[in-house]
C-alpha cells in the first residue's frame, strides 16, 4: 500500500491505495471524480487525460503513487466556480461532443494544446495535436472547430488582460 497525497482541483487530498492503483482509478474510486474516463487499455484513447503539474497526461498510464506530491486538475476543476472554462463553452457552442465519454479528455488536452500555442492554432495543428484522443461520435469536425474558437477567445482574453495590466 502507498500513501498518496495530492492537490486535486485546488484541494489537498490524501489516501492509501494499493501500489498498483492507477491514478485514474484513484481519482474515480477514492475521490469520486468520475468525470475522468477509461476508454482503452493501451494509452491511446485519451479519455483519461488530466493535468498533472500543469501537463496533460494520461491518468490511466500513471500510478497514483507515482503522482503523489503532484498538483492535479481534472475536468471537474477546470472552470472557476459556476462559469464554464472557455474551452468547455466552445465545445458546447460548436457541438464538439455527442455521447460525452471522450469529452473530458478532449477538453483537458485542448486546454493544454491552447496553452502550448499562445501564438494561435490552425486546423492542421489541432488535428495533429489530437493524435492521442479518440472520439467515435463527432468525426472530430466540431471538436476541431471548438478548439480553434476557444483558442481565439482565450487569445483575445489574454490580450484584454494584458491591456488592463498596462
Amino acid at each position: 500500500m502507498s500513501d498518496v497525497s495530492l492537490t486535486v482541483n485546488g484541494r489537498r487530498v490524501s489516501g492509501s491505495a494499493e501500489d498498483r492503483t492507477l491514478l485514474v482509478h484513484f481519482l474515480r474510486e477514492h475521490l469520486g471524480l468520475t468525470g475522468t474516463h477509461v476508454g482503452c487499455d493501451t494509452s491511446q484513447c485519451g479519455a483519461c487525460v488530466v493535468h498533472v503539474d500543469g501537463r496533460a497526461v494520461k491518468s490511466c498510464t500513471m500510478l497514483a503513487a507515482q503522482a503523489s506530491g503532484s498538483t492535479i486538475v481534472t475536468i471537474e476543476g477546470l472552470s472557476d466556480g459556476a462559469e464554464l472554462h472557455p474551452v468547455q463553452a466552445a465545445f458546447k457552442e460548436h457541438h464538439g461532443l455527442q455521447c460525452g465519454f471522450c469529452t473530458p479528455g478532449m477538453i483537458m488536452m485542448a486546454t493544454d494544446m491552447i496553452a502550448r500555442y499562445p501564438e494561435g492554432l490552425d486546423e492542421a495543428t489541432v488535428r495533429a495535436e489530437l493524435d492521442g484522443n479518440i472520439c467515435r461520435c463527432t468525426g472530430y469536425h466540431n471538436i476541431v472547430k471548438a478548439i480553434l474558437a476557444a483558442s481565439e477567445t482565450m487569445a483575445k482574453g489574454a490580450k484584454g488582460k494584458a491591456k488592463q495590466a498596462a
Binding site: 491511446q44 485519451g46 497526461v57 494520461k58 498510464t61 500513471m62 493544454d112 493524435d131 492521442g132
Partner: peptide, 8 residues
C-alpha cells in the same frame, strides 16, 4: 506517440 505520451 502523442502529446500526453511525450509529456511523460
Amino acid at each position: 506517440g502523442d502529446p500526453a505520451v511525450r509529456y511523460k
